[in-house]
């Protein structure tokens, strides 16, 4: 159990420091390349959500997010160095799948229904998780996707950061559950049940999480990292020193990743047409 707690904290901390470092790059213009082909929208304060959900996922599963997607990918296990290099338009190691993201926010739910349909037809036991935020829950395509997922009993988990959605899905016959998105333990438990249910053929679920999006430093009771720290040290499960050591490891990893990203070769594959067209 303590290994799992350490792992969860490491992922949340990695997302936080990754974000903070990226923000520093954006605000100070520290990039030596002068180029930032990919954008880095803020996710600070929501690490518990990405981590609590994605720790239940494996290679069979697909995630789709909004433009705040980098963090979901880190939570699902993508190589931090590769993700950071990708934001710089550069490449480290083998090409990493960029994950599903959609600037048109309402597109995400339909895309994830596609992956879930594939998983169902191929009987892989895989699930699809769509992270919907920033009013992504309001376009008509989201309602179509909910309808589709319900009618076809697709293994999809819709994670809505918009308040009130747990109520709206009642008519689709999809269970809607409210969970505190800044509480890792709450998210982990609810997401685990929803994902197990989907894997077992139980159909889609909608998780409604509420957040205050942080633009500056994150702190106080809303800070999922501080809450996690207080609880695992209070219960005696992990010592402060163990968590401090993880902080140091993560800081080192991010600094190394930035340095490597800045000197890595320009990506041969960075192309706005990549993953858009295929040949038949």
């Amino acid at each position: 159990m303590t290994d799992a707690l350490r792992g969860a904290y490491r992922v949340m901390r990695t997302i936080r420091v990754f974000e903070e470092r990226l923000r520093q790059e954006f605000t100070t213009g520290e990039f030596t390349t002068g180029e930032l082909p990919a954008s880095g929208h803020r996710y600070a304060g929501e690490e518990a959500l990405a981590t609590g959900v994605c720790l239940h996922l494996d290679a069979r599963d697909a995630i789709a997010g909004t433009h705040r997607r980098h963090d979901h990918r880190i939570a699902k296990g993508a190589d931090v160095k590769a993700v950071l290099a990708e934001i710089h338009g550069r490449q480290i190691g083998s090409r990493h799948p960029p994950g599903l993201a959609n600037g048109a926010l309402g597109g995400v739910p339909m895309l994830i229904c596609g992956t879930a349909l594939a998983a169902k037809q191929q009987d892989t036991g895989g699930v699809g998780v769509a992270f919907l935020g920033d009013d992504a829950a309001n376009p008509g395509t989201t309602l179509e996707a909910l309808h589709l997922a319900s009618a076809w009993h697709l293994p999809v988990i819709f994670v809505a950061e918009d308040i009130g959605y747990a109520d709206r899905v009642v008519g689709f016959g999809v269970p809607g559950v409210i969970v505190d998105g800044a509480d890792f333990f709450a998210v982990h438990e609810v997401a685990g049940e929803a994902i197990d249910r989907a894997r077992g053929g139980g159909g889609p679920t909608l998780l409604e999480v509420g957040f205050t999006r942080h633009r500056g430093p994150v702190g106080g009771d809303h800070d999922c990292l501080q809450r996690f720290r207080a609880r695992v040290t209070g219960s005696g499960e992990l010592a402060e020193q163990v968590l401090d050591d993880i902080d140091a490891e993560v800081a080192k990893l991010i600094e190394e990743s930035v340095a490597e990203a800045k000197t890595a070769p320009k990506s041969a594959w960075y192309d706005s047409a990549a993953d858009v067209y295929v040949s038949y």
Binding site: V170, P175, G176, I178, E193, A194, T205
Partner: peptide, 20 residues
């Protein structure tokens, strides 16, 4: 507004009480 929305909708057949 949050009553009738917890995990028991997943682990049991608890019903959702609509806002309306």
């Amino acid at each position: 507004p949050a009553s009738g929305r917890d995990i028991r909708r997943l682990v049991a057949q608890a019903s959702v009480f609509p806002t309306s």
